[in-house]
Design a protein around this nucleic acid. Structure first.
Length: 275
DNA sequence: AGTGCGACCCGAACGC
DNA sequence: TGCGTTCGGGTCGCAC
């Protein structure tokens, strides 16, 4: 599942391979994937080139002269670069053909990813961009910032960690892992967290993302056909998907509960509820 | 305003 | 074995 580190890897890889090539064809095989008008989507990209690729949160932003193409990989989205004549694979939903006989193909088994073409001037007003909070490695992400965001929230910290407007880039798996690292019970109301808790959340988010980059880095070198990265990091998970397996720290069986409809894994001993 | 939940998908894992 | 059912990921949009 691509999370922020993997999206960054995709961005860097694509930047080396597709910039400044003229787009001579745009084919969309699954139209609901395109949130903006599909005719405009094709027409406004034809004849243009991607001149840069940026990223905000988990959104990739392909820049052309007048437009930004926003692309979210959700869980399983991947980009491939293939020769023009290669037959379309089953889950390739959008194919951009460049004038050098290469194609950029968006592939997504779940069809969950989304694309949106907007005028550059609209970027700051686009909902998905406006919503993004601070990334884990942002120096402005401090305990003060978190305490301030958390103080009014009675909802469980697990749910709050998934709120991209506060910390940008943590998904369900990472939220579970961060709370294990910080030894915080996922049901704890966010407003009850202390400075020390917040410090550990920031530390944990950075640690876990750094580990994921390490694993992702290893994976991508051996997986040359795809520009997406899929997780060897799974091998490193401490609680996620480990229901009834023993905690690596204390041998207590890991619990699995639903919080806000999302499966939540934690060690009931290491992550005790307060008082 | 903030909060909660269903919808969107389909492959994998599971139950019978 | 094969068929049917359930689940899970991130985000949006709608209902309170």
């Amino acid at each position: 599942m691509p999370e922020i580190a993997e999206v960054e890897t995709v961005r860097n890889t694509l930047k080396k391979r597709i910039l400044n090539k003229k787009i001579k064809e745009v084919k969309v095989f699954y139209e609901p994937m395109i949130e903006s008008n599909i005719i405009d989507f094709k027409n406004n990209l034809l004849g243009q080139s991607f001149i840069d690729i940026k990223r905000v949160g988990k959104w990739l932003i392909f820049e052309t002269e007048n437009y930004y193409l926003l692309s979210h990989l959700r869980m399983e989205g991947k980009y491939f670069i293939k020769p023009t004549n290669e037959i379309k694979a089953k889950h390739e939903h959008v194919i951009f053909t460049f004038d050098d006989d290469t194609t950029l193909r968006y592939c997504d088994t779940r069809k969950f990813g989304r694309m949106n073409l907007i005028l550059k001037s609209e970027l700051a007003n686009t909902k998905c961009i406006k919503k993004q909070g601070l990334e884990p490695n942002d120096k402005n992400l401090t305990t003060t910032y978190l305490l301030n965001k958390f103080k009014t929230k009675k909802t469980p910290i697990k749910t709050v960690l998934l709120d991209q407007t506060i910390i940008s880039g943590l998904g369900n798996i990472y939220a579970n892992e961060v709370l294990f690292y910080a030894k915080i019970n996922p049901l704890t109301p966010a407003c009850n967290l202390t400075t020390s808790d917040c410090k550990k959340i920031i530390e944990g988010a950075n640690y876990i993302i750094k580990e994921a980059i390490k694993m992702g880095g290893t994976t991508i070198r051996s997986y040359t056909s795809s520009l997406g990265v899929t997780g060897r990091f799974q091998q490193n998970l401490k609680v996620h998907k480990r229901e009834n397996e023993l905690c690596f720290n204390c041998n207590t069986p890991i619990n699995n509960i639903k919080i806000g409809g999302r499966s939540t894994y934690y060690c009931p001993n290491c992550q005790k509820e307060k008082q």
